[in-house]
Design a protein around this nucleic acid. Sequence first.
DNA 1: ACAAAAGTGTTGCGATTACACCCATGG
DNA 2: CCATGGGTGTAATCGCAACACTTTTGT
Lengths: 242, 242
Amino acid sequence: MHEHEHALNPHLSVDCVVFGFTGEYLKVLLIERNTTRGKDYKLPGDFIYDTEDLQGAAERILTHLTGLEDLFLHQFAVFGRPDRIRAPHDLQWLRETTGLPVNRIVTTAFFSMVRIDESKRENALRAGASWHPVHALPTLAFDHREIIQAGQKALQKEVHFAPICFELLPWKFTIRQIQTLYEVILDHPLDNRNFRKKLLKAPYILPLNERQAGVPHKPARFYIFDRDLYEQNRLEIFEYNF
Amino acid sequence: MHEHEHALNPHLSVDCVVFGFTGEYLKVLLIERNTTRGKDYKLPGDFIYDTEDLQGAAERILTHLTGLEDLFLHQFAVFGRPDRIRAPHDLQWLRETTGLPVNRIVTTAFFSMVRIDESKRENALRAGASWHPVHALPTLAFDHREIIQAGQKALQKEVHFAPICFELLPWKFTIRQIQTLYEVILDHPLDNRNFRKKLLKAPYILPLNERQAGVPHKPARFYIFDRDLYEQNRLEIFEYNF
DNA sequence: ACAAAAGTGTTGCGATTACACCCATGG
DNA sequence: CCATGGGTGTAATCGCAACACTTTTGT
């Protein structure tokens, strides 16, 4: 598993909140864990090698987990309360799995976005990893529930500025898909007609001639996001509020 | 200086980008430093005690530096590249001043806002600390120039959402002051009439009957920011963009 | 009287909201 | 022919951008 020659630093870790979208729910990728208190779940994460960048550590974890490379990755917070790891079964689990005298760990949290279909089709997820809806999370290790919630808040903020949601959608998508995605991220319903207008005004969202097939209702048109056109058309924003 | 009994952790530090505003420029608080390469400047920062929260460490540094408490404090990034401290004079300075075998340090960056008038009147700054305009920074230690720039970007983002700028202004301020402040933060000129309209529409900006005195032109009215009224009137925003 | 900054209104445009019905398909 | 979700238009309002002159004070 570990190709690096150098030592792990037992004070520093990264944890990744990996978001996915099934067309219905916003989901997070979690790793199953066995402790003295039974089965629970944790975020994908690891200690950092001495020679390794934080971002590099996150990339290593994600690539190992999903087989995918060049994933979207955004550092959003550090969690470092001295007592963030204090439950006996958490401490024992850490000492057993790492073999290190672990005490306080400061973790840098990243959020990432993967297309669930890609991770399924082209690359099996590592054993023990599974998707869970953010609104119904299982029992989580450490302070990982708090980290996931902070990650969703960070995602909500990011959605004000940048077209990052396309990272979660299939290459070609319907308007309903992207609207539902925004609704689950913002946790708020949106008006369909107004959403369409706003979306179709964007010059970098291109309609295909292709439509859904085999659906028991009027088939929806597919669209694609053209990142090059986006980069050409983007302009600086100087918004402010009091 | 250090009231804590417990040990410093030589892997972890916090650095604070402390913003101030003189009515003209956006400024940053820097600490003078003497190295084998001569005099330069660094951000206020320190290692973290084993028993201490990250936020707590930042508060300790700021209180010690300015004498002020309950300052605005916002964690915005972690800097952890393995080679972020590599210049020989930086390494030597660290070893001399800490007495520790320092290698890689991961630092959590906070930004903070202080009213320069308060820090002057009521509390002398610690010796060696001084204000520098962000657009004309002196030679800086480590990667601190990069951290300051990231801090200003974070401040620009924050200004979309929250009325944090009042932390930088005197308790009573003129419209020109706050407009100039927004201009230096956003690094972009704003239209005065439109700015006034937007500001005066906010129900939590209250005019005083008091005006400037002794200025060689029409004296400007003073306003205050009423945080309670703000909290009552704030509503959730579900903005999005592609 | 002059210099210097404060303060003031209108118009056009683009964006956002609210809202209800017909369309195309599979079963 | 029915159930299901896709797809469409308009009117009212709001917020933002552009733009130039008068007012008040100290010197």
